[in-house]
Design a protein around this nucleic acid. Structure first.
Lengths: 245, 245
DNA sequence: AAGTGGTCTAGACCACAAG
DNA sequence: TTGTGGTCTAGACCACTTA
């Protein structure tokens, strides 16, 4: 058992506990963690801080808590799937799996809402409003994987440098432009493939494709961007878990 | 403004706040809620209780919180979609939308893991273990909507009465058998339709179908059931939202 | 009865956004 | 500077599970 002495914050506590769980030093052979009061003493934090950390680990799928019984580590059973709860940064999660997501083709243009392929449902957008449209073709381990079409509100995004289009666009806005993304809505569906997708994925027209529509909002509640990603159905699985209590 | 006097618990507080939000009595015309200290005073609860409630409302998509600015109600833009975060009880959510989910055909049989159509990934199950298999064909507003195949571990489920098969099976186990469901894993994908599905949905073989695989665990961490639902892609949209901070 | 996680209070200080 | 939400402590009692 490691014995941290100094009081630490919740984010750090979460990181330390993840490491300890992965090392197998936190739980016993049956996967049971020490009780909360023991953990408080161990990490020198208050019950609140500890429970916040446990709650985060729970949300992240590292453990589950059973009232009157204890907390237990939760084996990770789905390794090579996209986790919906985490994926703001997509590329990162795939990298963590030892795989590579790469943009092989990207185009950019400026147009108005009236000319967009799709717009967010039940959301008022002036038809004249200018948008930056980006279309990207992306591969997973060098095989066709997804086609992404995204729209950024021009008055908020200003411009998107050419080289950024081959990396994470959201990273750019958060790091360089200090725009703070607050939350996003996702709608998942599927549909028959159109010609462009069929060509890229090397599938017949009409084959299935998994579709993820995202609407991204700033912390202020303003709509900032919206996108649609079509996946090669043979390679796309989306994962999520849910506490039910 | 309503003025509750007695101290209330978090669950009740959440309910009251939802009502107040929907009535429009909680937020001002711009959707801004009173500050936390005002709300504490208003509902006569501690900061912790209030913030737990706000956190739940946030998770449920009723509001978002912006540091240094305030909390704001979040308009509900996606009404007729299934919300992934809530749906343990599916039928209920659909009923709330004023729609009807109905089972038009159901079959039940007992078989072993070796004979199952599918099993959970990376999970050890003895091939001899007995399962109760239920297959259900279900309609939404009298139109074909989903085909569900689910397996319950026989040693935990014992038996499933015929009439339950036309209602919520999980409700039965939670209410009647006092089995406590703790969490579940979901994997979403899509694939070409097989013959049975094509016939039911009145679609050609090979048309897309949205697939949701669920593994359900008891609060003790034991696997209890697993299922696969295939949706008519024209009627199925899954929704989720995510805080990103 | 003992030990576990869940709820709740009171109070403090911090970080951030806006005037 | 002021008001906002975010983090954190200390302590209490409750509800549930197991033995």
């Amino acid at each position: 058992m490691i014995k941290p002495k100094k009081s630490i914050d919740i984010a750090t506590l979460v990181q330390e506990m993840i490491v300890a769980i992965q090392n197998g030093t936190l739980a016993d052979e049956k996967g049971k963690l020490p009780g909360e009061y023991k953990l408080m003493d161990h990490y020198q934090v208050s019950r609140y801080a500890l429970r916040e950390a446990l709650g985060k680990l729970n949300e992240m799928g590292y453990l589950y808590q059973a009232r009157g019984v204890g907390s237990f580590v939760r084996p990770r059973r789905h390794e090579r799937v996209m986790t919906l709860q985490n994926s703001l940064d997509f590329t990162e999660e795939i990298a963590r799996q030892g795989r590579t997501l790469q943009t092989v083709k990207a185009t950019q243009q400026i147009l108005t809402v009236a000319d967009a392929d799709f717009v967010p449902e039940n959301y008022q957008l002036s038809p004249d409003l200018q948008l930056i449209e980006i279309e990207r073709y992306r591969t997973l381990d060098d095989e066709p994987y997804q086609i992404e079409k995204s729209y950024y509100l021009k008055n908020l995004a200003e411009e998107i440098p050419e080289k950024i289009m081959y990396n994470s666009v959201f990273h750019y806005f958060e790091q360089e432009k200090a725009l703070k993304i607050g939350f996003l809505d996702k709608v998942i569906s599927c549909a028959p493939l159109m010609k462009v997708g069929a060509d890229f994925f090397n599938l017949p027209v009409g084959a299935p494709t998994l579709i993820v529509r995202d609407d991204t909002f700033l912390i202020s509640g303003e709509l900032f961007a919206f996108s649609k990603i079509c996946y090669d159905y043979r390679k796309a699985e989306l994962f999520m878990f849910k506490k039910t209590y």
